[in-house]
Design a protein around this nucleic acid. Structure first.
Lengths: 223, 223
DNA sequence: CGCGTCTTTGAGAAACATCAACAGCGGTGG
DNA sequence: CCACCGCTGTTGATGTTTCTCAAAGACGCG
């Protein structure tokens, strides 16, 4: 999962990679369903999410799909390799982005501070992906779903009354493709959590966590 | 899978991140079984593999294990996050490494070229990990094993007579934990490839690829 | 209100894990 | 030099998890 930039250093959460005065930065708005880039597109820019949620996916020739990550505000998306993007990226909600010229970010003569922060973002990204490896490789279906809900809650959950609550902008098949499961298995795992009164759903996209400790126990958090 | 540094730019394969004259570089030798670092160790250095093969692993509290990557010559290991390593790293063979002070690499005042190349390595790493996501999330056991063998072959295979051949320094359980499978399933997938005359084993750690096209077809390569 | 899409649940099938036994191989000590 | 031992790898039988296929329910939208 993509990680915020504030890990690095003296970077406040609501501050973009560069100050707004920087000539290399501009903004972009996406509406729901818009594509930001596609796999194998030439990577000219790197993006930081200001608001909204993005979806990064890779697809196999036969249609099997893997959701690489969901991008939330503060995340950086569009890390290039060999001049190209290596996943598709589209918007699950309306979104606003800071756009950085890749050239300016990576060039040796570029802004050193900015460059360093891009590296920090990349390193955090690697760390998060390693967690996800453990999930995909070794966790059961219910552990994956519980981990997923915990992660989202930590990220965007807000206390409503006694309980944490959050909205899932992605549908069940997105979650399934993120966790390496079928949509049915995701549904069943969620139903199980509901029957155990660990969570409850206000509607299918709004989750309320009733027993965070129990959820964490199922998630079998490594950290 | 970790990727070589030569992706970046004018970096020849057999040249370390810094020139040998650099004060921040020294070398380290590992013998088989040595630990380079452990999860949660404070990350003071970043390493580039000169020779040998390393294994990066993460372990859950109940013992389930995920091999994050196998590190081959040219790979960079020890990407830190929040000042710590986030996996264990040990040597599958005797190995030699270039050691870089993390401080010197990440510091704003540090060598700019070096810094840029570290970023390139991190970006390549992210790209490789995304491929691995697809593998862990969406590929069948035989596809995973075929993909794995193809990748290793591309990396270190050498033509012997008409066929490519390579040695696997890791044992079956390492491969299993890398692919998110049981050792038995890995064995069976390999046996299947043997019965189909796609590969043959000189011994359990030495693979000869008889039909690379067939192997690639099973691997269902996305690229 | 009707329609399409997403979600949920159920039943059966497939893939993979687990448990168990055996084979191969290298090392060690008699 | 050979027999034994332990470890890794392989194969078989069985069990469990998850996928697939199918159908019904829920929800939003026109």
């Amino acid at each position: 999962m993509y990680v915020t930039l504030q890990n690095g250093d003296n970077c406040s959460p609501d501050q973009p990679l560069t100050k707004s005065r920087s000539p290399v930065t501009f903004r972009r708005n996406l509406t729901k369903g818009d594509h930001l880039f596609r796999e194998a597109d030439q990577a000219k820019s790197i993006f930081e999410i200001e608001s909204g949620v993005l979806r990064l996916t890779r697809v196999m020739v036969d249609g099997r799909r893997q959701v690489i990550a969901f991008g939330y505000p503060g995340d950086v998306v569009g890390f290039p390799s060999s001049n190209c993007y290596h996943s598709d990226c589209d918007a699950l909600t309306p979104a606003t982005l800071f756009v950085y010229s890749r050239d300016a970010l990576e060039r040796e003569s570029g802004d050193v501070v900015l460059h360093r922060r891009l590296l920090q973002a990349a390193l955090a990204e690697i760390s998060g992906m390693q967690d996800h490896f453990l999930m995909l490789g070794r966790k059961s279906a219910s552990e994956r779903v519980a981990s997923f809900l915990m992660t989202i809650n930590e990220r965007v959950g807000s206390p409503i009354g006694h309980y944490d609550q959050f909205t899932l902008p992605m549908d069940r098949s997105d979650i399934a493709d993120f966790l390496g499961l079928s949509t049915e298995t995701v549904c069943r795992a969620i139903s199980q959590l509901r029957k155990s009164n660990i969570i409850t759903l206000e509607n299918s996209h709004t989750v309320i966590i009733l027993k965070p400790a129990a959820l964490g126990a199922i998630a079998d958090f490594v950290k």
